[in-house]
Design a protein around this nucleic acid. Structure first.
Ligand SMILES: [Mn+2]
Ligand SMILES: [Mn+2]
Ligand SMILES: [Mn+2]
Ligand SMILES: [Mn+2]
Lengths: 228, 228
DNA sequence: TTTAGGGATTAGGGATGTCTAATTTAAGTA
DNA sequence: TACTTAAATTAGACATCCCTAATCCCTAAA
């Protein structure tokens, strides 16, 4: 059963939207995500249902079947391994990789995937901190972290993952050393939600509007790791 | 002007057939090369002509315009750099690279091309000995070599290039050390054209039917390089 | 319980790339 | 020169993926 690149993008979009919503994914959400019109989505959903990739309640939305989930995880594995490989071995900046990976993910063979995974020593996360499904498509455990926007002043946290969607934001974050692994100290939380942090070795604090801070996911530092 | 992957394959096919034939390339040749029917080719030729990629005399065949040639060389650069990169950095065998490169050549960005060219230190030939157009699309000079099938007994030659089309033949040649750079001694030329050579450090002679030997291109060894 | 509004689907059409069957053309042969 | 035949093109169709316009369905508010 060969899937087109377009079908794979629909499956991946449904998977990601599913994560965010828990519930069924609606036609209009998919249309927004993929920048197509609602009727286009409806007709694609017909085809995906025929192929047993999704389950559907008409007018109510869709969810992935076990088969659909496998396809999604395979594409996501491709995407994140590509991002890691481009960053590690081909000098791509942290902010540029997403677009290239989003195209190539549909066109690489199993052999290519195996080769880059081996060259990277089977990494567990991509450059943005997102988990990479292993060769049997299981996701490494470790929760999704907590949004930076949840924290109060004077908390110390470690960045686990940043959203890889907007490359301008990504560039801003990278420039200010807000990358997976960096320790952040929350300095100020403004009433309108803007959060100001001290990042890594940087002297200058960085301010992030709430909607940006929402896409930086962090872990709290264990007491044992804080040295007074 | 964005070209589809399919259009790019037509342009590349026309370029390669042009090389072999010198004359105009005919519909049926393209159909054979790309494994489609003649009417399919005709309708694609209409589109390529509209886009000024080919010149055409109806019922007589086509040739590439300057613009078409540039497109062809760009795809060929992608293809051969990919082959070199997959072989050098991702452990692909000499025989497996062609298929992967034939797909990816249409989907990589300029940035990707630049990165792999840099990682390879701007190579002049691919693993099969084919010349790689440089970043301004000029082919390095150095002729196409002479077919091994042209030589007589007791000649010493160096392999310059082998056809990368048939991966089984390629595997056979690689297994017997007939690769670009290897020195060959022609041992016997049978009346029906089969040629038997001693390759590299190998003790066992290797026999190649005429049609295979025709696709191994070699250079004669300069007198100065032969040590008595 | 009816109805308005918004989201989803159906209807119909366009572009791309492929096919088979029918027709036309070129070119060699008689 | 006329005929034959192989190659190329035209005609018409289908699958995929997209669109706009029209219609249908669900739900929440009156
Ligand atoms: Mn994609
Ligand atoms: Mn990522
Ligand atoms: Mn190709
Ligand atoms: Mn090659």
């Amino acid at each position: 059963m060969m899937l087109s690149a377009v079908m794979e993008d629909y499956i991946k979009a449904i998977y990601h939207l599913h994560k965010e919503n828990e519930e069924r994914v609606r036609t209009s959400e998919i249309a927004d995500e993929l920048d197509v019109t609602a009727p286009t989505v409806t007709s694609m959903l017909d085809k995906l249902e025929e192929r047993n990739l999704i389950e559907r309640k008409k007018y109510k939305g869709v969810s992935l079947t076990a088969h659909g989930k496998r396809v999604a995880l395979e594409i996501i594995r491709h995407h994140r391994l590509l991002e890691a490989y481009l960053t590690e071995h081909l000098d791509y900046s942290w902010a540029e990789v997403h677009e290239e990976a989003d195209r190539l993910e549909h066109h690489i063979s199993d052999e290519f995937v195996t080769s880059i995974a081996a060259a990277l020593d089977d990494p567990e996360t991509d450059p943005h901190g997102d988990p990479i499904p292993n060769s049997t498509l299981e996701l490494p455990d470790g929760g999704p972290g907590i949004a930076l926007s949840e924290f109060e002043e004077d908390t110390i946290v470690i960045v686990e993952q940043v959203s890889d969607r907007d490359s301008e934001v990504l560039e801003y974050l990278a420039d200010h050393e807000i990358t997976p692994g960096t320790e952040l100290t929350v300095r100020e939380v403004a009433p309108f939600g803007m959060i100001t942090v001290l990042a890594g070795d940087n002297d200058q604090p960085v301010s992030l509007p709430q909607h940006i801070a929402h896409h930086v996911r962090v872990a709290t530092v264990e007491p044992a790791q804080v040295f007074y």
